[in-house]
Amino acid sequence: MAAVDSFQFLYREISRSCGSYFETLALVGALYTASRAVILLSDCCTLVRVHFLPRMVPSRKLTQRYGDWAVIYGASEPVASAYAEELARHGISIIFVTQDNTSVRDTAASLSQIYGVETSVVIADFSQVQAASKPIKEALRGKDIGFLVNCVDGTLASPQSLIEMPEQCLLDQVNKNVTVATLMTRLVLPGMVERSRGAVVNISSSACCRPLRGRVALTAFTGYLDNFSRALHLEYSDKGIFIQSLIPFQIASSGRQPSSSSLSPREGWFVPKPEVYARHAISTLGISNRTTGYWPHTLQYGMVRCIPEWIWILGSRMCFSAA
């Protein structure tokens, strides 16, 4: 009995001495919970502001806000082709810049016939930068260029180790996804700055958010495009130029124009058709300079952001080993 009384007495003494610590820990926990709640509320407000309000509130025509012409680089990718079609649906004339005119010419003719806009295709050999710049400058001369859309090469989505990539293939990918995107921006920006309006949209991938095993090149190139866009926004936003980095998650292949990627994700709520994605993405123009462009993808991005990097890397290794 004495032992029990002694224990109760000891417990009361310890509780009395530690009471202030418990209160402090409770306060810290409450503050942390409140901060997470504020962040969640802020993210929800941003989701509504970026993805829902622009689609409900009428705005000025894209031609009035940015210009009459758009330059599209990477239109062989379904998402870029769909983006071009959505611009054409808004009355924007299109200039396609490509190294391979086979599929792009068909796309250009189709847009011109369906939407009644002007289209042209510029063939440029980007292995020789000076020679490639000349026809592009000629095509841009005298036109009110309001949009530039650069799209990362979809073939990079296929898992491949860096040392498995042939050297020439790697150099071609660097040229296509880094050099050309930068050059196209350099060619288009002066006219936009002169007119104090325009939009540059760089479509990369969510791979820029977290490293992906077996996709070193994709992670690197999309990371470049994303940071390139953010730096441009910092430098040119006060000159009336809107720079946007689109970082979509998976997008289904178009039935009309199969993706160059060997991966063909099944269409669904989180894997939209290119046309659906483009419609949502264009509604975010002028609203957010860095976005997934599609609100279910924004939910995915929020979940990915909550995962600690060490857990992400561990899970990536386990999935890669299982595959």
Rank of each mutant, 00 (worst) to 15 (best):
D238T: 15
D5E: 14
I123D: 13
R210H: 07
Y32F: 14
L299C: 13
R186A: 14
Q173S: 10
I311Y: 10
L53W: 13
L212H: 11
R36M: 08
F228L: 10
A82N: 12
N227Q: 13
F96D: 05
A217K: 02
R279Q: 08
L187Y: 03
V174A: 14
L187E: 06
V178T: 12
I282D: 00
A30C: 10
R186F: 10
R195S: 14
Y73G: 15
L162C: 02
I311D: 05
A84F: 06
L171F: 08
L62I: 08
E138R: 02
Q173R: 09
L53R: 12
K239L: 15
S93F: 05
P190L: 09
R186G: 07
T102P: 01
E118I: 01
D226R: 14
S110E: 11
I311K: 07
S76T: 13
Y21D: 05
V200D: 04
E77W: 03
P296F: 14
Q250S: 08
E235A: 09
M303E: 04
N202T: 05
A26N: 13
E138M: 04
L225T: 01
L212N: 06
I251A: 01
E164A: 11
S103Y: 03
D43W: 06
G91M: 00
M318E: 07
I247K: 08
A34M: 07
I39C: 09
G315D: 08
V188W: 00
T219K: 05
I287V: 15
D68S: 14
K137T: 12
V152I: 15
I39A: 14
P296D: 09
I247C: 10
F242N: 02
T24K: 07
A281G: 09
G223I: 09
S205Y: 00
G74C: 06
Y21W: 12
L314I: 00
S245R: 06
L234H: 15
A231H: 01
G154F: 00
S59M: 07
V178P: 02
A323K: 10
A181G: 07
D172L: 07
L232S: 09
S120G: 05
R195V: 03
C45A: 15
V71E: 00
L299S: 01
E235I: 08
C208F: 11
P58Y: 06
V271N: 06
R256F: 11
E13V: 06
W310Q: 12
G116T: 09
S261Q: 06
E164G: 04
G91W: 01
A34E: 08
R215I: 00
E23M: 05
R186W: 07
G67Y: 04
F249Q: 01
S264W: 00
Y66S: 01
S20I: 13
V201M: 05
L140V: 06
C306N: 03
A26Y: 09
A82C: 09
T298H: 11
I114Q: 15
S288W: 04
Y115K: 09
S262G: 12
L47C: 14
E13K: 11
S204L: 01
I72W: 03
S161N: 06
D144F: 05
F7D: 08
L47T: 15
S253C: 11
V188Y: 00
E267T: 13
W269H: 14
A217D: 10
A199K: 02
D68M: 00
